Computed example of a mutant assay.
Amino acid sequence: MNAKVTSVFLYVNDIIRSRDFYHEVVGASVVQQLSEYEGGPIALVVLRLGDFTLMLHPQDAHDEEFRDQRVGIGIHLQIRVSDVDAFYQHCIEQGAMLSLSGEPVDQSWGWREFALRDPDGYVWSVYQDKSNGQWTS
């Protein structure tokens, strides 16, 4: 069996703010925005990062499911970039002061990375693989 993770579905508090964060800061392309009815509030935003799909859905439609939970807790995602220092600088220029770890640092396993938190608390490791092929996707 050959499996590949192709997408993630994130529940968010403010779908417009999250869409803008992933589009303007992270660089994802907005593929689709859907409402349940014409003129209604956005119910789903679909974004693409390379061949990966990121789907955003408003949490408030599922308040009962999230009553005792907080969005963003318990998940840690990763984004590989070609130049982590340039991406970090881009985040600062975009006003995304949502860094958890400060400036990018070299890790013993060959990554140069920093941690970024999105508007809902989802944590992303933004990294550049400098392991000379030890880590492959």
Rank of each mutant, 00 (worst) to 15 (best):
3 A>W: 11
4 K>N: 14
4 K>E: 14
4 K>I: 12
15 I>K: 02
17 R>P: 02
19 R>S: 09
20 D>T: 03
20 D>Q: 15
22 Y>Q: 02
24 E>R: 07
30 V>T: 01
32 Q>C: 06
37 Y>D: 14
44 L>F: 09
48 R>Y: 00
48 R>H: 00
49 L>F: 02
49 L>H: 00
52 F>G: 01
53 T>E: 11
54 L>D: 00
54 L>F: 01
54 L>P: 00
56 L>T: 02
58 P>L: 01
63 D>I: 06
64 E>Q: 06
66 F>I: 04
69 Q>C: 11
69 Q>G: 05
70 R>L: 01
74 G>E: 10
76 H>P: 13
82 S>D: 13
85 D>C: 09
86 A>D: 05
90 H>Q: 05
91 C>N: 05
94 Q>H: 15
95 G>C: 05
97 M>N: 14
98 L>S: 14
101 S>N: 03
103 E>S: 15
103 E>T: 14
107 Q>S: 08
108 S>P: 08
111 W>P: 03
113 E>F: 12
115 A>W: 08
115 A>M: 09
115 A>V: 07
118 D>V: 00
119 P>Y: 12
119 P>D: 13
121 G>N: 01
122 Y>F: 08
122 Y>S: 06
125 S>C: 08
130 K>C: 15
130 K>F: 06
131 S>A: 11
132 N>D: 15
132 N>V: 06
133 G>L: 09
135 W>N: 13
